[in-house]
Design a protein around this nucleic acid. Structure first.
Length: 477
RNA sequence: GGCGCCGUGGCCAAGCGGUAAGGCAGAGGACUGCAAAUCCUUUAUCCCCGGUUCGAAUCCGGGCGGCGCCUCCA
């Protein structure tokens, strides 16, 4: 069995083969850092992380690039409103984005190119397109890509360009395009652009790059003419990615992307998330509401990336319970009595078959929902097995634990829960003190007093469990 | 108007022709001083109607109901 991925360009699930054996070049369309990323953005970025981690899990050498768009209409508008420069406006949002990513357990990319650092290369790129007559400079100081010069235009989205509703996208008269469907590679600088520092010199005068151009230039610069995977949200298929293909292939003469993967947009509480509805949810808000990052990560990867996902608070609760089950399981394995003279258990078999199922699920176009099932089957079957035995062989336990951690190396749930559910020393000391009091009470048969203490701990979010091996406690919620 | 997606138990969600994974919630039981954790048991014929097939949630046609893109958007 090997990895199969859905390709937007072919609309089918195809065998994945990187251009270079053993090495995968991935380009992910990152955020425009003019505002905080919201939870819908993170569905995509979390999926990208799954791809990143799984490719590495499969022993590919992965080069993962994610761009940060720091110049475009929205960035300029925002910077202008705040009366700050492009750089001043985007820097903090870029930092917060990376911090949020870390909180959710998203592994860092190898490179985070920023558009403003590639202006010269973009200009060179446009020059090539003009020279090959795929682009033309217009009287309005802009340079446009002539889509009629690229016969495959529209293939990714599967549209016939002649059916495009001319005029739906732009007001004709404002631009000096030869064809209303052509898109800008370079835009003449406005006064506002100059004010916020979003203008550079070019053979066509002062100006700034068009949005679509940056990804083509940065990906080709960082990864070469042909990418193995290009990831993005579904909204980017057209026109963004369509345009990227046109300009890249026209410029390099090489196939641009071997596999296009697009994540379906998230719904929030039953509605499409949109600014007009005012239902944008950011990671910060959810954390402030008390939800933990592991639950958020779980919910966002609990359905297949091409399927619908409705993000709800209720779902978050369910995810919190699911993550807790995983944590309890891991803890149980860590603490299970070991006896190397114990009789053989099913643990090695269960571990093996869990890993097989997991791989099969992920190989099937990154089916994380199915992969989660694999991990939970391991949980319940191993739990049942452990219930039957007073002790297990150390090596058996290790196999089960390793399988769990191996799968989590991709899903990242325990990993995130461990780092986000840490308790500070002061609280720990207080809990330990309380538990000692309670242990004394119980030893004396003063159960009412013991229950009062347990109640007190519960109010602070500490759950107490008495087991055969003694009392343990954990933070819940 | 063009292109496309979806409709599975109370909620979420797999399934890609062979008689319905998993998570959450609920009920009953075991265990427990009581709990918690864990285990066991328990809850679906897959929107509707036709068709293809020995056999369909899975393929085809039609209908109903949600939704997305075609314009900045992950």
């Amino acid at each position: 069995m090997s990895l199969k991925v859905y390709n937007t360009a072919t609309r089918s699930v195809d065998e994945f083969e990187p251009l270079e054996q053993g090495r995968v070049r991935v380009y992910a369309c990152g955020p425009t850092i003019y505002d905080h990323a919201h939870i819908g953005n993170f569905r995509s970025f979390l999926f990208f992380d799954l791809v990143h981690r799984y490719l590495e899990w499969c022993d590919y050498e992965v080069c993962f690039v994610m761009n940060l768009t720091d110049v475009d209409d929205k960035v300029i508008e925002a910077a202008s409103r705040e009366s700050v420069s492009l750089e001043e406006h985007t820097r903090p949002f870029g930092e917060v984005f990376l911090a949020d990513s870390t909180v959710l357990g998203i592994r860092p990319a190898d490179v985070y190119p920023r558009a403003t650092k590639y202006i010269e290369r973009m200009v060179d790129f446009i020059k090539r397109l003009v020279a090959s007559e795929n682009a033309y400079s217009a009287d309005d100081g802009a340079v446009y890509f002539a889509i009629d010069s690229f016969s495959a235009y529209g293939k990714l989205k599967g549209i016939d360009t002649s059916t495009l509703k001319v005029g739906a996208r732009v007001d004709h008269d404002e631009y000096d395009k030869e064809d209303a469907r052509d898109f800008a590679l370079w835009k003449a600088a406005t006064e506002e652009d100059e004010t916020v520092g979003a203008a550079w010199n070019s053979p066509w005068g002062r100006g700034r790059p068009g949005w679509h151009l940056e990804c083509s230039v940065m990906s080709v610069t960082e990864l070469g003419d042909t990418l193995d995977m290009h990831l993005g949200g579904e909204d980017l298929i057209f026109p963004h990615h369509e345009n990227e293909i046109a300009q890249s292939e026209a410029a390099t003469g090489q196939p641009f992307v071997r596999n296009w993967l697009h994540v379906k947009h998230l719904f929030v509480e039953g509605q499409k998330m949109s600014k007009s509805l005012g239902n944008f949810v950011t990671l910060r808000e959810l954390l402030d509401e008390g939800y933990d990052p592991a639950s958020i990560r779980h919910l966002l990867i609990s359905s297949h990336y091409r399927g619908e996902l409705n993000f709800t608070r209720q779902g978050l609760q369910a995810s919190a319970s699911a993550v807790q089950r995983l944590l309890d399981f891991e803890h149980r394995l860590e603490e299970v009595p070991i006896n190397d003279l114990a009789e053989e258990s099913q643990l090695p078999d269960l571990a093996r078959s869990a890993l097989d199922s997991f791989k099969m699920a992920m190989d099937n176009d990154f089916n994380s929902a199915d992969a989660l099932a694999a991990i939970f089957i391991l949980v319940s079957e191993v739990n049942a097995e452990l219930d039957l035995r007073p002790a297990v062989i150390g090596a058996d336990r290790d196999q089960a634990l390793n399988a769990l951690r191996s799968m989590d190396g991709v899903l990242g749930l325990l990993e995130v829960a461990h780092t986000s559910r840490v308790v500070d020393d002061e609280v720990t000391a207080w809990v330990e003190r309380k538990l000692e009091e309670r242990a004394n009470a119980r030893a004396n048969g003063e159960y009412a007093a013991a229950d009062v203490i347990r109640k007190e701990l519960e109010e602070r979010g500490i759950l107490v469990e008495d087991g055969p091996a003694g009392t343990r406690w954990k933070v819940v919620g």
